[in-house]
Each structure stands twice: as C-alpha cells, then as structure tokens.
Amino acid sequence: MADTNTRNDSIKGRNRKYISFERKRTIAGILFLIPTLILCGMFVVWPLITVIKYSFHSWNGLSATMDFVGLDNYKALPSTEGFFDMAKATTIYAFGTTTLIVIIGFIAALALDKKGRYRVNRGFMRALWFFPCLLSGAVVGIIWRIMYTYSNGVINTVLKSMDLTPVNWLETHGVTMIAIIVATVWSQVGMCIIIFMAGLQSIPGELYEAAAIDGANTGQRTRLITIPMMAPSITINVLTTSIMAFKMYELPFTISRGLPGYSTRLLTQRIYFYGFTAMDYGIGSALSVLLIVIITVISLIQLVILRKREDIY
C-alpha cells in the first residue's frame, strides 16, 4: 500500500513539473504561430468572410452605405448579362483542359519514364516538357495571342505555306475556345507529367517482373498493372487540373479577351469585370462565392476518394 502511495505521489509530482514544462512549450508554440495566424487571418480568412458578407449586400464599392439584400444577388445571377454563356464556357474550358492535360500527360509520362539504350537522357527530356510551366500565365497568353493572330501569326503562316485556309483563331465561335484550351494545355501539361512520373516511379518493379514471367505482354502490363497502380495519381491530376482550370484568369483573358461575343468569358473574368469595371460588388461577390464553392467541392471529392483508397490498401 505504502509503496503505491509513494509511487502515485511521485507520478503526481512529476506530472506537475511536466505540465508546467508543457505549458511553457505551449506558450512558446503559440508565439511561434502568431505571425502566421495574423497574416493568414488578415489576408486570407478575413477577405473570405467579407466576400460572403458582400454577396448578401448591394454595394458599388464607393458609397458609404451597403444595403442588405439577402439572397437577391444570387437570385439575380441567372439574369445577369451572359450568365449562361459564362457557365457554358467555363464548363467546356474546365472539362476540355482537364481531359486533354490528363490524357496527354499520362502518355507523355509513360514515354518519359522508360529508360535504356537508344533513348535520350530522361532528366533532360523531363526538363524540356516541364519548361512551359515556368512561364507566367500572362506571358503565355501574350505568346499564344501573337501566334494566333489572323493576318501574320505563325500558325496561319504555316497553314498558308501548306496551302491550307488560314483560320480566324481569335474571332470564330467555337474555334477561339479550342485556341485557349490548347494554350492552357501547352502551359500546364508539364505539372501533370511530373506528378504522373512520381507515381510511376513508386510502382514496385517486381510487379512487372512477375507479370513478364507469367507471359504478359506490354499492353497487358500497362492495362493490368500500370493503370490500376496509377489510379491515385490519376485522381490527383484530374482534380488539381480542374481546380487550376476553374481558377485560371490571365492566360485565356490575354488570348481572347472573352471574345467573340460571350463565347470565352470564364467565371474568373466575370468576377473581375463586376468587381473592377462594372463596380457591382454584390454580383461580383456572389460569383466569387460560386467559384469558391465549386473549388471547395472538387477538393472535398479529392479528399474523400483518396481517403477511401487508403482504407482499401
């Protein structure tokens, strides 16, 4: 009995010391976190809350008073100029870029992953494919806008030299959308390749050896080993690329200015337009909230799918 008591006492005594030591550490930890909390709070969390607040108000950004209008801004969205054109353009753009980037990225990663005789240095090739990702979206927009120019852009010059009809890339409905999708794929596919290559390198080589012993050919090995093993990388790439596409502003805007008509006006361009040209903060904020919701939903899907997969394996 006496023994247990002393032991309890000593544990208590140690605990007390331990707590004060822990408390010191906690205080130090909080001090370490303060700069991050202040900066993220002020410049990320606060604007996030404010944009939701603005979306329930009618305000032009200048007048002293803001009128609370409830859900009126959201209800007015469908009747704002070109809303459905914007929804269509944003959907086509996001879907088109994501599909193309993931398919091209996957094929390119498979090709770039193979090493051996008769092949060019892989590190060098990977750098070549990643290179366009280094350029700013604004810069990529300028380059492609010049290339697409009708009368003297390089693409039409080449078409003419091959006796083909030049295309009015920047002023034809439907074609301009393809033009901005191609430019986006060009500038973003490198990122996707890097993630796919990291995934490919994590597949154990034994799987391929075992399959080869069992007599599986290259096609079977790709279909039955590579693609299933790459499922997490494919999920990540599909979702991060679609988030990138929904967020993209300067690249498509520089190329097409949202023209012709409303055919390439994306959600981000409408936010900028209502916020800084039309000065209708209510509608602009409602559109911003719409964008934030879309991106949050995609991120949640990503989280759920990846979690589920971790449970299975």
Binding site: C40, F43, V44, L48, T50, K247, I271
Partner: peptide, 16 residues
C-alpha cells in the same frame, strides 16, 4: 486555406 482561389477574394482584398 490552401484550397481557396485568390481571385475569389480579390474584391474584398482591394477594399481592405
């Protein structure tokens, strides 16, 4: 917070 798109908060950030 890594999820939030910058353009979604650009209007209040300018006001701020």
């Amino acid at each position: 917070l890594m999820v939030i798109p910058f353009i979604g908060t650009v209007i209040p950030l300018v006001v701020q």
